[in-house]
């Protein structure tokens, strides 16, 4: 047993428990786009899409897993252990302190969670790189977890779905974060060599070294509406070139027009779309529509989540 399984995971689990109980049923959330106050339970039922303006809120791994896997049943992979701070990096704060804060805030070890389960009966591997853990930044922990998850997908012949949001490489790991670009690319090629589909769902925002490597190497690129996707962040571009940025610049719909993604898909259609694409690529027969799923527990509330029907 590793240090992770013995110590961190129970601790993380207790943290998640704490987070759950801190989210009461009657909590109201404000839509960051239109300011609408939304009842938490309604927001969960709406898959964290604002019922007023359609804004797709940033969500984490548990929410994604719940929205993809059959009956919210899945098994999470234990993230591989990596050197925690090989550069002994310190800016105005120690990197180890930033890491600890992120772990406490999110209840996760790093910005990558992966799990195996089924999607309309098809075995799949799903990885989520959420923005709330240090901006979804790519370091050794994320890189190694992706390599591990993709390798497991190859071993188990599962198509791979990645939900990604990231500001790019994690500066605090210096060149070692940069090296994750080729490292994860090798794992993507393992999926290719094994003839397994690799579907990337680009969510808000996806930029930098992540978009410039495995996030743009999918067999299929799906984006959530209005997601910011690009190489350089907008501030960098605006400062560097002092040009007026075009309307909708670097948004999902703009990338669709420029040929960089296959489709923009509303979160409510995401599960059905993923299922359809994967069944076609895997030459499986048309999946049975999964009618309203049994009530499930998400974030401490009992909510009915519409299925793929």
């Amino acid at each position: 047993m590793s240090w992770l399984t013995n110590f961190v995971r129970p601790r993380i689990k207790s943290l998640i428990g704490a987070v759950k109980s801190a989210t009461p049923d009657n909590l109201w959330r404000k839509c960051p786009a239109c300011g609408e106050m939304i009842f938490h339970r309604d927001l969960v039922a709406a898959l964290y899409v604002c019922p007023q303006c359609g804004h797709h809120m940033r969500i984490g791994a548990p929410e994604r897993f719940a929205q993809v896997f059959d009956n919210n049943t899945f098994e999470e992979l234990i993230p591989p252990e990596v050197a925690p701070d090989p550069l002994r990096f310190r800016d105005e704060k120690r990197y180890t302190d930033r890491l600890r804060e992120a772990r406490q805030k999110t209840g996760r070890i790093d910005a990558l969670s992966a799990a195996r389960g089924t999607l309309d009966g098809l075995p799949v591997m799903v990885a989520v790189q959420p923005f709330d853990f240090m901006g979804g930044s790519l370091g050794m922990g994320v890189g190694e977890a992706l390599v591990n998850a993709m390798q497991s997908a190859v071993d188990e012949s599962r198509p791979f779905i990645l939900f990604v949001a990231s500001g790019g490489a994690r500066m605090q790991e210096g060149v070692l974060s940069l090296m994750q670009m080729p490292r994860v690319t090798i794992a993507v090629d393992m999926l290719r060599d094994a003839g397994l589909p690799y579907v990337v769902v680009l969510t808000d925002p996806t930029t930098g070294g992540v978009s410039a490597s495995y996030a743009m190497l999918g067999d299929i690129h799906i984006a959530e509406p209005n997601a910011l996707i690009g190489f350089a962040g907008q501030r960098v571009t605006a400062n560097a070139v002092r040009e007026q940025l075009p309307e909708g610049y670097q948004r999902a719909e703009y990338l669709l027009q420029h040929g960089m993604i296959d489709m923009v898909v509303n979160r409510k259609e995401m599960r059905a779309t993923l299922s359809k694409v994967l069944h076609l690529l895997m030459k499986r027969s048309k999946p049975h529509a999964v009618l309203p799923l049994p009530p499930r527990v998400i974030a401490g509330t009992v909510a009915r989540v519409p299925g793929g029907a």
Binding site: A212, F231, A232, A240, V241, E243, Y249, M260
Partner: peptide, 13 residues
């Protein structure tokens, strides 16, 4: 790599 509108439009990433 260059970061600017033209580079993004043609898929720098």
């Amino acid at each position: 790599a260059y970061s600017g509108v033209a580079a993004e439009d043609r898929g720098q990433a």
